[in-house]
Design a protein around this nucleic acid. Structure first.
Lengths: 142, 142
DNA sequence: CTCCTTGCAAAAGTTTTGCAGGGGC
DNA sequence: GCCCCTGCAAAACTTTTGCAAGGAG
């Protein structure tokens, strides 16, 4: 099970931050819509503008600093936010149809380990998507 | 050897575009500084503002459309541009010190092939960097 | 009561677009 | 001469910041 809104608020409290209505509301949206690709703008929309965008950005920043949330760049648009208690995965975005798929742990861990072996670099798959062509579009290409 | 300015201009011409002074100038900078991480702004700077930024963007877009150039997102700043005749490589950007390193062909091709095997997705390593910690910063972390 | 937070507004940073004049072919 | 290109200016879009008023602890 994923972190709930209360646990997110508690995380902020442990970080020395106050539990305000605005922060609770943002945590609520993040917890409730964890399987969506949440952007700051979509969070503001979910809250019908009752919380200002700057407050949403600041709350997301705080949650990210506390380690329970990360943001990922899927493309040229806004960043999307993810709870970190989801299994590690790499986003693959099709540059033709825009569809996003994810690849999960076992093979991915292997790939990243190979990079670390070769370079010492410890890659973090969450932060950037990989761009390319999905199976369908790649097939249509030929 | 890399593509020279004249070859880039010729590429544009083959795409049905005119060989203007502004485009020649941009091609000159791209060809001459191919080992730098060129951003639209740095290209404008190299040209001392003699070519407008919008023209630079439009020329880069044309070169990219012609397949001789790609842009990569290294982080939160502007995109960087690369000639495509450079060997395929993946950028790794350290989120702590900002240093960028690259990993080259043989292993990388293997990793991407593994992804394609698993998902059918044909990943393009050029478009996004991988974020993480470089060997030095990862070591300092412990 | 203190000072952390908020909303508002504006700025910052990157990229795109509309338009009238100028230049390539 | 036709119409593609350019520079200029402004807009679009995402994110950040300054500040005075308001609310948590």
């Amino acid at each position: 099970m994923h972190l709930g809104a209360d646990e997110l608020v508690e995380t902020l409290r442990r970080a020395g931050l106050r539990a305000t209505a605005a922060r609770r509301a943002v945590c609520e949206v993040v917890a409730t819509h964890h399987e969506e690709h949440l952007t700051p703008a979509s969070i503001v929309a979910h809250l019908s503008g009752r919380v200002d965008q700057s407050t949403v950005y600041r709350t997301l920043e705080a949650l990210e600093g506390a380690g329970v949330l990360v943001h990922t760049h899927l493309g040229h648009g806004p960043a999307v936010y993810h709870l970190t208690d989801e299994p590690v995965h790499q986003h693959l975005v099709c540059r033709r149809c825009g569809r996003t798929i994810e690849i999960g742990s076992p093979r991915l861990a292997e790939l990243l380990a190979a990079i670390t072996d070769q370079t010492g670099f410890v890659a973090d798959p969450a932060h950037f998507a990989l761009s390319g062509l999905c199976a369908g579009c790649a097939a249509a290409d030929r």
